[in-house]
Design a binder for these strands. Structure first.
Length: 412
RNA sequence: CGGGAUGUGGCGCAGUUUGGUAGCGCGCACGGCUGGGGGCCGUGAGGCCGCAAGUUCAAAUCUUGUCAUCCCGACCA
């Protein structure tokens, strides 16, 4: 894409009403637009990152036989009444409204109950199990207080998956498979080294859940970790979990983390409440074992920014960067040759953001760095004389002068 | 929902204490110079000073209300 055709404009200053680093940088670099507190729109640049993250998650969920679908944002009151969660005393983050005929509806903050209600239509026999479905959905949550930029909004993109099983053993086995899939996801997002599976509060249906927590100063949680990182417990269940695991609490050290995923087993409790049963080989009806698995897509995006940014701006891992290359043209012959290089790289399947604007070099360099594109390729008059191009790595500032063939080989 | 702070061209800010006809930087438009780190010069466009009521000859400035935003806390499947 040519920069001259991209409407995005970068800014030297961050908006005064944002203090979160992720929001400041994402707004300055033109990835997001703030609509109101906790609500952000994503620009053409921003959705490229979201789609990259989603695709990684999609591939890993498909690999464990998850089937993608999309539920609705509008939900029925009756769907939630069976489990008592329509009540605002049970769930205090509901957005609710009414149809013109007075019918009450809710805006989806979760899709647990709606998924069960829908799957009931399709799953009746042990032959239909196990099954696992997932979606990417914009969740709407009426949080009393939004904060931390895109890390905790009232509207955010989440991947939620639900698995259904005939037995506890089958659910447990699949649950462990999901943990491994999640680890692959966080590895690919560049967060693997700092993300840990932790014991956390189980909420309404189980005693403990597992959270995927990434060490991040901007996070809201406190994790207690053993020195070898083999045990990680969320502060909210520290006493319970350590006694259950037989661990001396004083050996664990606190770190600030951000929750980037949460998985939990419902067992059969929710199925029983929602009349979600299957007929077994024995001809009798049995409740279905359910588990649920979430990944905050937009939150992960915010965490990546928080963790990788330096004083010049964002530093996207190559796996989620909106473009692989930021191509800078300098001077007249530089621009002419940059046009060629652009076509050359695009034809080779490389995603290039080509800064073809009539701007001074410094402005282009600053934008390349602020936007966090992994590689900057510079084509200037003086490089054209040598028939060479320059490659600069965003993360390390390492610079090399190459032929265009070597450039392509390096980028691949 | 409790506590604190802030709302002034698209963005960042000054002006409010001591009321007197709104200013700076960035950005934007036009012209020129420049051309490897957000460069320079000139000209110009753009503002119901969050909104509403009140005090006053006169309100960005004082009073009251209200809305919004941020931070801390509580909350957070």
């Amino acid at each position: 894409m040519r920069r001259s055709e991209l409407y995005i404009k970068t800014s030297k200053s961050a908006p005064a009403d944002e203090t979160a680093k992720n929001a400041q940088l994402l707004i300055r670099a033109g990835f997001v637009y703030k609509v109101m507190a906790g609500v952000y729109a994503y620009t053409p640049l921003g959705i490229r990152v979201i789609e990259k993250i989603k695709q990684i998650v999609r591939e890993e969920m498909n690999a464990i036989h998850g089937q993608e679908l999309v539920m609705s944002s509008l939900q029925r009151k009756e769907t939630w009444e069976a489990t008592g969660r329509w009540d605002e005393k049970a769930v205090d983050i509901w957005f609710k409204s009414k149809l013109q005929d007075g019918t009450e509806v809710g805006f989806g903050w979760s899709h647990e109950e709606p998924i069960v209600e829908m799957m009931r239509q399709y799953i009746q026999s042990y032959k239909d199990l196990p099954s696992s479905v997932y979606q990417f959905q914009t969740k709407l949550r009426n949080e009393v207080r939004a904060r931390s930029g895109i890390m905790r909004g009232r509207e955010f993109v989440m991947k939620d998956m639900y698995s259904m099983h005939a037995s506890q053993e089958d659910m447990d086995q699949y649950y462990d498979q999901v943990i491994e899939a999640y680890k692959k996801v966080y590895d690919r997002l560049g967060l693997g080294d700092s993300t840990f599976v932790t014991f956390a509060s189980g909420g309404a249906f189980t005693k403990f859940s597992h959270e995927f927590q990434t060490i991040c100063e901007a996070g809201e949680d406190t994790l207690y970790m053993s020195p070898d990182h083999s045990v990680a417990v969320n502060g909210e269940v520290l006493d319970d979990a350590t006694s259950e695991l037989g661990i001396d609490k004083s050996t664990l050290q606190p770190v600030t983390t951000a929750e980037v995923g949460n998985i939990f087993k419902f067992g059969t409790e929710k199925s029983e409440k929602m009349d979600f049963y299957y007929t077994g080989e024995d001809g009798h009806r049995h409740p279905i074992y359910l588990a649920s698995y979430g990944i905050g897509i937009t939150r992960a995006m915010g965490v990546i920014v928080e963790k990788t940014a330096d004083d010049k701006g964002i530093v996207w891992p190559a796996t989620v960067a909106p473009f692989g290359v930021y191509l800078v043209s300098i001077g007249e012959s530089g621009s002419r040759v940059a046009d060629e290089i652009y076509q050359y790289l695009v034809d080779a399947g490389i995603e290039v953001l080509y800064d073809d604007r009539d701007e001074r070099p410094g402005a282009k360099f600053a934008d390349a760095e602020l936007m966090g594109i992994p590689h900057r390729v510079t084509v200037s008059d003086r490089l054209v004389e040598q028939n060479m191009v320059e490659l600069t790595v965003r993360a390390t500032s390492e610079t090399s002068v190459l032929t265009r063939e070597d450039l392509l080989a390096t980028l691949r």
